[in-house]
Design a protein around this nucleic acid. Structure first.
Length: 135
DNA sequence: GCCAACGTTGGC
DNA sequence: GCCAACGTTGGC
């Protein structure tokens, strides 16, 4: 199993929206690096859900329920893909970017290195550490 | 509101 | 194919 992190601006689509809808097609990704990661996702993989913008925190854990399929909005069929996720765990104590920065074990998170990437892999030890910090 | 870091576009 | 200009994202 692999672990991931996706970012969303809560005014665009929030964790609460995902909870309300029960599942969501994660589409609209128009970045090659992010797309490649989407293609690697497998059913059952776990996905940290990060709010960018004002709050800047990991607020939930979602699960991949459908592996990469063509993005319906990709009318020119350029190979963009989407996946489907559902909420799994709502985090009671969200992990803020500030805490992530101040935690030595999380210094290698791509989140800190490539601030603009919206889909990225997370190593299992780091994922486990985040789960421990937020539970 | 500003700026850094990228990604994209278009002229050459 | 290079590079300047521009647009976008996201942290501060």
């Amino acid at each position: 199993m692999n672990y991931w992190l996706v970012k969303s601006e809560p005014s665009e689509y929030s964790w609460e929206d995902l909870l309300k809808n029960g599942e969501e097609i994660w589409d609209g990704i128009r970045n090659f690096q992010a797309r490649n990661y989407l293609r690697e996702m497998k059913t059952g993989d776990l996905v940290l859900f990060y709010h960018s913008g004002k709050t800047k925190e990991i607020i939930g854990i979602a699960e991949v329920t459908e592996e990469a399929f063509p993005d319906q909005a990709d009318s020119e069929q350029k190979g963009w893909v989407s996946i489907r996720i559902k909420p799994k765990i709502s985090i009671k104590n969200p992990l803020t970017l500030e805490k992530i920065k101040n935690d030595g074990q999380l210094s290698n998170l791509l989140l800190l290195k490539q601030s603009r990437l919206s889909v990225m892999p997370v190593e299992k030890p780091q994922f486990d550490h985040i789960v421990k910090l937020t539970s």
